[in-house]
């Protein structure tokens, strides 16, 4: 009986830790995301029209100075919100693939 009670109390403690850790992790990520958003938005307001990629601010700038300009890509997805959509799709597919293979790797071990 005593043993059972001890196991139960330990289980409860593990559950509490689990909840506490999950909450902490979630809050940390949310805070980080909020800070990232704030910094990004604030800086874009202060320095409007900046946040260009270094390909634009360095590579293309120097190339242009030396008489070479970037050509349109073969499949030009840089049109309106199309590129935004492509980036979203790329992020989702890449993220899911990473998650799938990570699970395969870690579950392999559990099975073995």
């Amino acid at each position: 009986m005593n043993e059972k009670l001890r196991v139960r109390s330990l289980e409860l403690r593990v559950e509490k830790t689990e909840n506490w850790l999950s909450r902490l992790l979630f809050t940390t990520y949310c805070l980080l995301f909020a800070v990232l958003l704030l910094v990004t938005c604030h800086s874009s307001l202060v320095t409007a029209a900046e946040w260009s990629g270094v390909d634009e601010s360095v590579v293309e700038k120097y190339a242009k100075d030396h008489g070479r300009e970037a050509k349109e890509p073969l499949i030009n997805t840089d049109q309106g919100d199309l590129l935004l959509f492509m980036f979203l799709i790329g992020g989702v597919i890449g993220g899911f693939a990473a998650g799938y293979y990570w699970r395969t790797l870690t579950e392999d071990r559990a099975k073995n």
């Binding site: 990520y29 390909d55 590579v59 590129l83 992020g91």
Partner: peptide
């Protein structure tokens, strides 16, 4: 992992006009 994926996805969709080191076509 789930939240990292969420952050990466949101980040990719939020920042639009941003590329980097890859040398573009024709340079």
């Amino acid at each position: 992992l789930l939240i990292t994926l969420m952050l990466v996805t949101c980040h990719l969709s939020l920042v639009t006009d941003a590329f980097a080191m890859h040398i573009s076509e024709g340079i």
